[in-house]
Amino acid sequence: MRGWRIFYLLGLMVMCGLFFGALQDIHPFGEPVEPAMDDYFLERAQEERAVNNVVTSIVFDYRGFDTLGEAAVLFTAVTSVVALFRKGGHER
């Protein structure tokens, strides 16, 4: 048990070291590297989809398939919670 804790601590320290190493190479805060796709959405969302909120246009239109999966995940989670707490479902 104790050996595992030391192993975990070592792994956590290695992970933090990798994080701070990656911090030296990451782009500066406030200047994204490849904003071409997002600039396209920002310019075209109003004329293509007639919507003011660009985030909503991406969530429900340009990448609507993602949102379908998200809604399915929410539905599945709710169904699981209901199945877990159904009356008498888990009494031995």
Binding site: P32, D38, F41, V55, V73, L74
Partner: peptide, 19 residues
């Protein structure tokens, strides 16, 4: 304007996190 795509994906991630 701020990039919209990371915000949309974060919205997805928040809802999945709640579930």
């Amino acid at each position: 304007m701020v990039l919209p795509t990371p915000q949309a994906l974060t919205l997805t991630a928040i809802v999945i996190g709640v579930a």
